[in-house]
Amino acid sequence: MKHFIKVFIISLIIFTLVIGTGIYTYAKYISPGDISDEIADSENPDFTGDEDMEFATPLERAMHNSNRVNVLLVGLEGTRTDTIMLASFDRKTKEADIISIPRDTYYLREGYGKYSDMQKINAVFGSEKDGHKALMKAVEDITGIPVDKYVTVEYDGVRAAVDAIGGVNFNVPFHMKYTDIYDKPPLYIDIPAGERVIYGDKAIELLRFRTGDPGYPSYPDGDLGRVKTQQEFVKAAIKKSLSLKLPSVINAVYPHVKTNFTLTELLGLTKDAIGFSTDKLSTYMLPGTPKYMGALSFFIPDGEKIIEFVYDLYDVPLTSNVEKDSLAEATE
């Protein structure tokens, strides 16, 4: 392809879905055989439900009639969800919104100690029989936003993708130095501060860094600072990926990506994403505050601010304090 079709962006960071969509576009137009034969021609894949449904609130109606596709983006290290994002792409306006969900976000589940590690959202995927489905439900419960699809990528896939695009230009905010000899394999992070090209291995170090060794700086706001750096790196990676041809990236990343998108859905979204640019990409942090409970640090979602965010996302006015209060209570 002389110019690759600008793909639907959302993945481990939006970047992942760029790769995911590209994989299926590549399969349709370049690779021969059974995969291409499976694809039906579909101009507008349907992510909506029954047209005759009744709705309890204006927000429910807006969600049902929306052109948005909401995708759970997960960065995996083994069975651990080290990065969790919810990406919402408006197929009509070609705007994308990414909500980062801190891995320490408190999500109460039965069968575990009230303030144990298992009550953090990053424990859901690896501890449930159907990890994808359980994590999608957890994100829906916390945000109130329906999750249509998921895309997961292993860290090896991120490493391969970054190398395939020739690295990413990025300004490292401070010297990141961290050692964990007990990790498997042992983890050594050492990235000097300043503007530099970040390649695959260093990209993984950058995305994983949170706390510095003694005598070296850490993020003053802990996991929140780490998430902000991840968002900035993703934006830089997307900007570069949109200027390149995809086949070499696809070949490198394909074994490490999993999604429940069908070929037809991805190809339809590819068409919708033509004209997308990083100027139409907005990133957010899940509203909330860090708090120690028991002996552990958790991130406590702010139900009221989340409701305000969701109403704004779907362009629905909050018409009364009663409605706002009742919805906030539902997220507690």
Rank of each mutant, 00 (worst) to 15 (best):
P301M: 04
G111N: 03
S31M: 14
E43G: 00
G268S: 08
R208A: 03
Y29I: 05
Y314Q: 07
T262Q: 04
F4R: 09
K129R: 13
M53F: 11
T283D: 04
D117E: 11
R91I: 07
T83N: 01
A161F: 11
P247D: 06
V253Q: 02
E154K: 14
G225V: 06
I30G: 00
A62E: 05
T105S: 13
E128D: 12
D190G: 03
T262E: 05
P173Y: 03
G131S: 07
S320F: 09
I14A: 11
P186L: 01
I300P: 12
T83L: 00
K129M: 11
D279L: 07
I5E: 14
T83C: 00
F276Q: 02
G268V: 03
D52T: 15
D41H: 14
L86S: 03
D302N: 15
G78P: 01
L313D: 01
G49Q: 09
G294F: 06
T57P: 04
T283F: 01
M85D: 04
D180C: 05
D190C: 04
E110G: 12
N44S: 12
A295R: 11
D156S: 15
D180Q: 06
I23Y: 13
V310H: 02
L59G: 02
E154I: 02
V153W: 04
G22D: 11
D141M: 01
I165C: 02
V197S: 07
K240M: 11
D272P: 05
Y112A: 10
K291N: 07
D279N: 12
Y284I: 00
V69G: 09
A236R: 10
K240N: 09
D272S: 14
P102N: 09
V74D: 04
T16K: 12
D312C: 00
M118S: 10
D312G: 06
I14H: 07
L246R: 08
S116C: 02
D213S: 08
K2N: 13
R61V: 00
Y178K: 02
V162Y: 08
K6T: 15
Y216C: 00
I10S: 14
A123D: 03
V257Y: 05
D302W: 05
K245C: 08
Y284P: 01
